[in-house]
Nucleic acid binder design. Sequence first.
DNA 1: TCCAGATAACTTGTCAGGCAGGTTACCGCC
DNA 2: GGCGGTAACCTGCCTGACAAGTTATCTGGA
Lengths: 233, 233
Amino acid sequence: MTVLSDIRLPVRAETPSLVESLADALLQPILAGAWRPHDRLPSEHALAEQHHVSRAVVREAIARLKSDGYVETRQGKGAFVAAAPGGKAFRLDSAGDDDHLLELRALIEADCAALAAERHTERDLRNLRAAQAAMRDAVAAGGLGLAEDIRFHDVLAEAAHNPALRRFAAFIGRHAREAMQLARLSQLREQNRLAEIEAEHGAIIAAVERRDPQAARAALQNHIAGGLRRHGL
Amino acid sequence: MTVLSDIRLPVRAETPSLVESLADALLQPILAGAWRPHDRLPSEHALAEQHHVSRAVVREAIARLKSDGYVETRQGKGAFVAAAPGGKAFRLDSAGDDDHLLELRALIEADCAALAAERHTERDLRNLRAAQAAMRDAVAAGGLGLAEDIRFHDVLAEAAHNPALRRFAAFIGRHAREAMQLARLSQLREQNRLAEIEAEHGAIIAAVERRDPQAARAALQNHIAGGLRRHGL
DNA sequence: TCCAGATAACTTGTCAGGCAGGTTACCGCC
DNA sequence: GGCGGTAACCTGCCTGACAAGTTATCTGGA
């Protein structure tokens, strides 16, 4: 069972390390377009001097940009802005606007629901019902059923039978839950709204079972909208 | 205008660096669940000895895992598997199956089209028509209009008025195009199928203009399906 | 015996310098 | 003018060291 103490609040605003600061500083001109694809970056030695850090710090910062696909390095030649900057990893941290993030999540999960309606197996349906039952039990036991709710949405994504979609749904779901300020979840019990969630989950299962993609999509959008309403957004 | 020589083929299967190898080696037990969240990793010194590399290499490998959100480090305590491993960045490189990637792209772009139908402004509509005209001109000039096609899809995503969605559409679009083996694009001209693309784009614009989300979604899915057919997938 | 404080032994963060291997540009020689 | 060698760059990788934070142990006093 998930309790409030398990929820990790963003308490610490730790001082960013030299590596992080430098990586951000180097990313800036790339994002802004001041450094264009195929441009050569200053050498590690030059960057170390300019930013008053050691070459090791420069190397780690560039390594980070490399792994995200912003720069490519070639031994003996130098470091270059990648042809398609940022093509290796998708991040949400810079997005700032929660509304757009939550909407993106709603779209993705609606896609999951629609595909699940078309493709689910008997096993998927059993898993969905089991996930809902687990959440009902958790709530009955006095918990909030947070972990069980996450599990329900993952099972739904699994029923879409597309691993890439499932992985992205899990990824954006985590960010969306953080954006919704989970600390407020305690209000759910007070306002006795956990029953609403269960009813909405049930509607999703029913639409999936009927193999009705449009209804599944609509049921999920209604569920997300309900979540936003419950969190006062 | 985009020509074939601009298309970057995946020729090089360069030897992975020590850092990349080690980062993958450390990621393995995390993904497999052998190292669970909050577990402590071996110290940098121990890892350096185990893998017969220097501490600098270990540090860069761990820095990469940190930036992806797989591990967190605290000075004096050590490195730990993150509570939500991989929560900071979404990657597609490991998802071997192209079909799922291409389907995810179709879903995302269909969402873009549906939202664009609901929210587009006059300016968006002008941009869409301009993008289509640019592609027509490029094709008329003997090119394949690849860059213009990319632009059309980006303008469509922009018309959805959700920056997060637009960024993800661009991200997955790049990967999808790579998966479709762009080198085969030369077949398009031979088979005179560029006109098909233009017609499909036109259908999307028409649905958006009518503010008909379902039709826009269907038009885009038809467009993606046509692309797959044209590439023999 | 128990407790508190000093301390030693870890950890990561950062620095300095160096060598190896690859690339480029220049310069002198033919 | 062309060609080859070489020097000066670049990144990849290594070694060794110190600073700063954390933890466990040990010691001394009550």
